[in-house]
């Protein structure tokens, strides 16, 4: 498949060099509360990827019909409809996990990434490119979410994806799971460290 260079960067940029969470600081709101375990984080990432790519495409198709004055409310209604659909799919097929995610699926509506991409990208670009941009940003968001969840589950429960990885002999030697990681401060601290590491690798300058 031949992709123009601009389409390609729309997809790859948000993964690392312009990640929505760690560099643009968008959409942390609904993200961190679901990162105590990997399974909820993975489902949440897929929900966000689905909502973001579909809403980006729809808004991009409608962009010439949306009057500038009421564009925010139009964007919000498109996004909210997608979120309701996603919520119903999750309730139908992943009932247990959707119970654990509770209000956070509905809170995808106010996730700043989705509004931000609709406003900054989908309103100016064609549907194909907007779809790629949505996928890229969704994946970039998912990467950080899964990264945080990986460390919190490993350090907090000694498991990865509900499988025990820290051997029993460690516990007998006095190793203990880190209770702090399960609580909310753990998420803030892990995310802060990930941002730090990414800025050292990515050579980003703060003003």
């Amino acid at each position: 498949m031949a992709l123009s260079k601009k389409s390609k960067t729309a997809f790859t940029d948000p993964l690392m060099s312009n990640n929505p969470i760690s560099l643009q600081v968008l959409g942390i709101c609904s993200a961190l509360a679901v990162t105590t375990k990997l399974d909820t984080a993975v489902v949440m990432s897929f929900a966000v990827i689905a909502v973001l790519s579909v809403s980006n495409t729809v808004i991009s198709i409608l962009r010439k019909m949306i009057p500038a004055k009421v564009r925010i409310i139009v964007q919000l209604s498109v996004i909210a409809s997608m979120v309701i659909l996603t919520d119903m799919v999750l309730k139908a097929f992943f009932y247990d996990i959707s119970k654990q995610l509770s209000v956070f699926v509905a809170l995808i509506i106010t996730n700043c990434i989705i509004m931000g991409r609709a406003e900054a990208f989908a309103m100016q670009n064609g549907p194909g490119r907007s779809l790629l941009d949505g996928l890229g940003n969704g994946l970039g968001y998912g990467l950080i979410l899964i990264g945080v969840a990986f460390f919190r589950e490993l350090l907090g429960f000694g498991t990865i994806y509900n499988r025990q990885v820290i051997p029993e002999s460690f516990y007998q030697a006095g190793y203990e799971n880190m209770g702090l990681m399960v609580l909310s401060p753990g998420a803030f601290i892990i995310l802060g460290l990930i941002v730090w590491a990414q800025r050292i690798i990515g050579k980003v300058e703060e003003e």
């Binding site: 909310s184 401060p185 803030f188 802060g192 460290l193 730090w196 050292i200 703060e206």
Partner: peptide, 23 residues
Amino acid sequence: VPLKLRGIGITMLLTGLLSIAFM
């Protein structure tokens, strides 16, 4: 503050500490 930690990095770490305090 270390150069690369300035801005959002240090703010997240501080929010973590604040969160411990509230807990």
